[in-house]
Nucleic acid binder design. Structure first.
Lengths: 339, 339
DNA sequence: GTGAAAGCGCTAACAT
DNA sequence: ATGTTAGCGCTTTCAC
């Protein structure tokens, strides 16, 4: 399905009256070619409409200038802007970006490795929080390809990570609640299985400790980060009759669930309860009350991760195993002063 | 940056004691190879961990099995599920999917064409509603590569389109409002420049006409589909003091703006005003009141578009220029009976 | 049913 | 500064 007969390097060479090697040089190492020659080649390229055949180049150079991105769900509001950042930086550096949507399906993860093993991608960005299922087996048993994790670190593996500083962000968030006079602050979204949740809980604990507020175990509610889990957590607190004045939620989706529950019970928000989120996903500014939250520098995370990966590809050794970017406090209407 | 020495077809051939041609056949045309030979080859492949070098294959076959997707914003909530559908179908058929995030920047659009002209992609999916800037010029003046438009049709070009039936969907939406007793129904989001808006307005008009309700021009408000435009439109109606009982909004983002405006004025929704959206983006179920809307079959749209593109790639002629999928009425809480 | 060999378009080592 | 040539790994005639 070729839409047209493409010019090759030979056509250009013929037209310019030079050898193909010279054309190649004029393109890739312009300084090594005489000015006049370079001019002729440039003109011949323009006249023929020549573009380098990337397949031939990749075959020869053993690199594709492509990066594979493995994500469980491209549609996740938390991913998409990171994706944009990744793509922007890659594109700027002449790299293309290949999308692998795994839906957490091990078979699909394995399937995507073919892009790596067949030389169609030089490096890997992992959103999944784990090595692709199938790595370290079969033909892939050798060393791993250059890769960088975003969003979620890969435990027990030497994969550099770029992401938000969850601990610090959660600490700042909780301190903000404390600064507004809150002392009975719930944490919604405890999950020992999730590194991100764990870190945010740590930040919460540290902030309370720093303010000399004792931790009340009844104020720490399990949750997996979904809106439904937030709703359920709030309901649980009512059942237990152990109510806080403020909810610090592990993420905005959870906060939304809490708000839904509170609204359904006809509380007047934020007068009766303050709610704090984390992430700043797009609709957080549109909920009622609009959500006070910690904003992840998603675009920057994407750029930084790609930068790091390309450095790895260029043979540089990463100076640090983690790049943590600061989350920014976004004050909206869901948190109010108390006491 | 090779992470390991990869086995080639020669290694497999040597181990199996056959020629590389036979290995190639055993992989690509298994029936043309004797059972016993095929068995030996299969085993050798397993032992060596061989995977076909996609670059060499592409160079030889002049096709990459890659599809380029050009989208103005990968993060758009309306895009992401279409993306998933596209990717799912492509992956199922052995194709990879390359992302081009253009941010409506002509330069970036042009830049991405290199993937096409350098043979890195066989076909094109367009979210942009127009041909990439730069097509029909320079070396690309020949015929266009196989492509399919989604989300927004490409005017004045023979590009097959797969999308939702906007006219029909808007008609159904408006009829739903009418069936709930509404007769003063506003349309928020008129825009002559946007095909999608135009079609949805047409559907609205048709429904009113069908019910014998005269069109009141004051009930049709301009808007570009953003939340802000929805807010502004509602405010405008208050200024004009021409109020409907229901708002049919060109999309959910607009509907959200209307809700924000109405909430800010302390109206009791949906008792005092009904609001209807279009799209069913993810947060529509979480707004208060939760939004009654028309759901776009986004995943299906993606799959159908990719199916069509791959058929085009296989040399089939498209049977129709448009594939329109039905939107589905999702009844939630923002529309209520009146009168 | 299988093998030998050409060649896809390019880069890089070597020669001049 | 430029040209000649080998070869990246594969598919596909063309012989047998």
């Amino acid at each position: 399905m070729q839409h047209q007969k493409l010019a090759t390097i030979e056509d250009v060479a013929a037209l310019a009256g030079v050898s193909i090697a010279t054309v190649s040089r004029a393109i890739n190492e312009p300084t090594k070619v005489a000015d006049e020659t370079r001019r002729k080649v440039t003109e011949a390229i323009a006249r023929t409409g020549y573009t380098t055949n990337a397949m031939a180049r990749s075959l020869r150079m053993r690199r594709s200038n492509m990066i594979l991105i493995l994500a469980p769900d491209v549609g996740d509001p938390n991913f998409s802007n990171i994706l944009v950042g990744l793509e922007t930086e890659a594109s700027k550096r002449g790299y293309g970006v290949l999308i692998g949507n795994t839906q957490n399906d091990p078979a699909r993860e394995t399937d995507y490795l073919r892009f790596i093993s067949s030389n169609q991608a030089d490096g890997l960005i992992l959103f999944t929080g784990h090595l692709p299922y199938g790595f370290g087996q079969d033909g892939t048993e050798g060393r791993l390809p250059p890769m960088v994790a975003v969003n979620e670190p890969v435990p027990n593996a030497e994969v550099p990570f770029v992401g938000v500083d969850n601990f610090e962000g959660a600490r700042i968030a909780t301190e903000h609640l404390i600064s507004q006079g809150h002392r009975r602050i719930a944490f919604v979204g405890r999950s020992s299985a999730r590194e991100v949740n764990r870190l945010r809980e740590e930040g919460y604990r540290r902030a309370l400790a720093g303010a000399g507020i004792a931790i009340d175990p009844r104020m720490i509610i399990d949750g997996d980060g979904t809106t439904e889990s937030g709703r359920a957590a709030a309901e649980l607190m009512f059942v237990r009759d152990a109510l806080p004045t403020a909810f610090f939620c592990v993420n905005d989706a959870t906060a939304l669930g809490v708000i839904i529950s509170l609204n359904a019970r006809h509380y007047d928000l934020p007068r009766q309860f303050s709610i704090m989120g984390f992430d700043d996903i797009s609709f957080s500014s549109f909920v009622t009350p609009s959500l006070t939250t910690m904003k992840q520098p998603r675009h920057r995370i994407g750029e930084a991760a790609m930068e790091l990966l390309l450095a790895l590809l260029a043979g540089e050794k990463p100076r640090e195993q983690q790049v943590l970017l600061r989350a920014e406090l976004i004050v909206r209407n869901s948190v109010t002063r108390v006491g």
